[in-house]
Design a protein around this nucleic acid. Structure first.
Length: 570
RNA sequence: CGGUGAUUAGCGCAGCUUGGUAGCGCACUUGGUUUGGGUCCAAGGGGUCGUAGGUUCAAAUCCUACAUCACCGACCA
């Protein structure tokens, strides 16, 4: 490719509303352009990268025995009514009508379509197991698109679905997919971790996420330093503190705490650590038929954070988790938020394991501007239930029993689920077994965010000058950068000869034949992250050499022109 | 959806307080100059100042509404 016949589209300045480096460099290097919130055009260079990622994913899926299909992005609403997700999926599902006012959705995922398809196409156990995948645009009407293609509304995803008789078979394919995912992320050249995950709205039993480690990641990943345990913080169990709860030594005392609403303020005004306080969060419970939702108290140690996923799985607590309104707090406790506590409150109380292990602690007095000190469980609050409802923090013991936990940020680029029979049952998808009985199939589903990987790769591979692509996904393998070609026939001839030689050898080469100054060219290629630069200049031609620059390492070396091709021997 | 902020040329911004015929840098075009790390000089092209309404002799500037975009919180590949 010659730059003169190509769209380079680099930007000197960083667009104002790009926050993370990957978004900034994707705009500056001319990979994408913004169209509307969460919607991007892929420019030629960006598309090359996207296709490379896509192909690696495709190759490894096929190697793992999955077969490719392509399903429509627009799907009839009745499929979604059949699975129950027309109601469950919420406003992220973009719904639209056709000219006959028939309702459709823009597919955010394809469990319904594939399950319908398989229920028609498969009729015998002999055809199982089957694993099909597609690489296709998805649309999710995200509440808040951000970070460029990292969280776009329309994005490219690889989604695979496997079908099985029995759980054992599903688990086997699940493991095959797990291994295939590891190979994919290794081939992409990314620093990644598989972690235990919550199954979320897709539902099902077992689940792993694959995260690319990066500071800008939106997820907290916890690791044990004493084993290979790794989990999304949503899923990581916080163990109960060791040993017996200390005995009560203080008496219950009401103290005035004017203007102390937050845990920090309370701890400071009473001169105690936050670990000696508890906070009482009031949330909506599950409403009985025709009645208002009851209010539930969730109690955490002052320094801990509520884990909403854990909380909304409790049978008493409404899902999605909804905080009580200020009026409900006042009605249920007799105080405003900031002064609510566990002593004498007449609603169900659910206490985190760590909070339940405290003695002589501080909590709100259910009276504005007052707190209790010297509070003790069973003596001052008798009716409560203990659960794990907090986020783990760094230093907590690992739930695997070995080591302590540390926390890092990750970008979720893959997610695999064992779905079980949820969709197969709803869509009546089954086959005849060996004994001639109809049996509903077990399903697995396996996603990879193809476009998100492009952004994640940049988050992990860049410097202040631009992108440093891993070789496997670089838009070009090498760029030829001639120095003042228009002034030197020798430079021009050499560059042209190199270009056609590399092209004929099938090397992906970008020939910078623009009449630009050297600095402009260097800056552009560093921004675009081409792994290798061949600098053709008058000064080395007497020796029949060109300069070779490596973008990853920054190394420069001389190479004989006749040896250039051997760089690309596979 | 709640909170915050923004919207002036392709990009980055100034101008608004105190109303008076829209500016800077980069990019673009032309000519010259320079040439191994974003040269320099000159001349040019490009803007219904987000939209609609209002106040006023006069609105980018003041007022009202709406729209769009981004950031912080809940969703997910």
């Amino acid at each position: 490719m010659r730059t003169s016949q190509y769209l380079v589209s680099t930007l000197k300045e960083t667009p104002a509303n790009a926050e993370v480096v990957s978004h900034q460099f994707m705009l500056r290097a001319g990979l994408i352009r913004h169209l509307a919130s969460g919607l991007y055009t892929w420019l030629p260079t960006g598309l090359k990268v996207l296709k490379k990622v896509e192909n690696i994913v495709r190759e490894e899926m096929e190697r793992a025995g999955a077969i490719e299909v392509l399903m429509p992005m627009v799907q009839p609403a009745d499929l979604w009514q059949e699975s129950g997700r027309w109601e469950d999926y919420g406003p992220e599902l973009l719904r639209l009508n056709d000219r006959h006012q028939r309702p459709f959705v823009l597919g955010p995922t394809h469990e319904e379509v594939i399950t319908k398809l398989i229920s028609h196409e498969l009729s015998s156990y002999k055809q199982l197991p089957m694993n099909v995948f597609q690489i296709q645009s998805k649309f999710r009407d995200e509440i808040r698109p951000r970070f460029g293609v990292m969280r776009g509304r329309e994005f490219l995803m690889k989604d695979a679905y496997s079908f099985h008789l029995g759980e054992e078979c599903l688990q086997k394919t699940y493991q095959v997919m797990f291994d295939a995912y590891c190979r994919i992320f290794e081939r992409l050249g990314l620093d990644y971790r598989p972690v235990l995950a919550d199954t979320g709205s897709i539902g099902g039993d077992a689940s792993h996420e694959f995260h690319v480690l990066a500071e800008s990641g939106e997820d907290d990943i916890v690791f044990s330093d004493g084993s290979d345990f790794a989990a999304n913080i949503e899923k990581a169990e916080a163990l109960a503190p060791q040993g017996e709860r200390p005995a009560a030594t203080q008496t219950l005392e009401k103290v005035s705490t004017p203007n102390a609403k937050t845990i920090e303020q309370v701890a400071e005004s009473l001169n105690i650590p936050a670990t000696q306080t508890v906070k009482t969060l009031l949330v909506q419970g599950i409403a009985e038929e025709g009645q208002a939702a009851p209010i539930i108290a969730l109690v955490l140690r002052g320094d801990h954070q509520l884990n909403e996923i854990k909380a909304e799985k409790l049978p008493l607590v409404a899902s999605p988790l909804t905080m009580a309104t200020d009026e409900q707090v006042l009605a249920a406790s007799g105080a405003n938020p900031g002064s609510v506590g566990v002593v004498g409150i007449d609603i169900p109380v659910i206490v985190d394991r760590s909070a339940a292990h405290l003695a002589d602690f501080v909590c709100g007095a259910n009276e504005n501007d007052f707190h209790f000190t010297g509070v003790n469980w069973d003596r001052d609050c008798t009716n409560y239930q203990v659960e794990d409802i907090r986020n783990v923090v760094a230093g907590d013991p690992s739930p695997c029993g070995q080591g302590k936990l540390e926390i890092k940020r990750g970008i979720e680029v893959g997610h695999i689920f064992q779905l079980g029979k949820k969709y197969a049952e709803a869509m009546n998808c089954g086959v005849l077994t060996e004994s001639g009985k109809h049996e509903v199939l077990n399903m697995g589903c396996y996603g990879i965010g193809v476009s998100r990987i492009v952004a994640a790769a940049i988050e992990q591979n860049h410097d202040k000058y631009g992108i440093k692509w891993p070789e496997a996904i670089a838009p070009f393998q090498v760029a030829i950068v001639p120095m003042n070609m228009h002034k030197s026939a020798r430079v021009q001839e050499t560059a042209e000869a190199l270009y056609s030689e590399l092209q004929q050898a099938g090397v992906e080469v970008l020939f910078d034949d623009r009449k630009e100054r050297p600095g402009v060219m260097f800056a552009d290629h560093e921004l675009m992250g081409t792994p290798l630069l061949l600098v053709v200049g008058e000064r080395n031609l007497d020796n029949q050499e060109v300069e070779l620059k490596n973008r990853q390492t920054g190394e420069k070396s001389m190479i004989a022109i006749k040896d250039v091709l051997s760089l690309f021997d596979k």
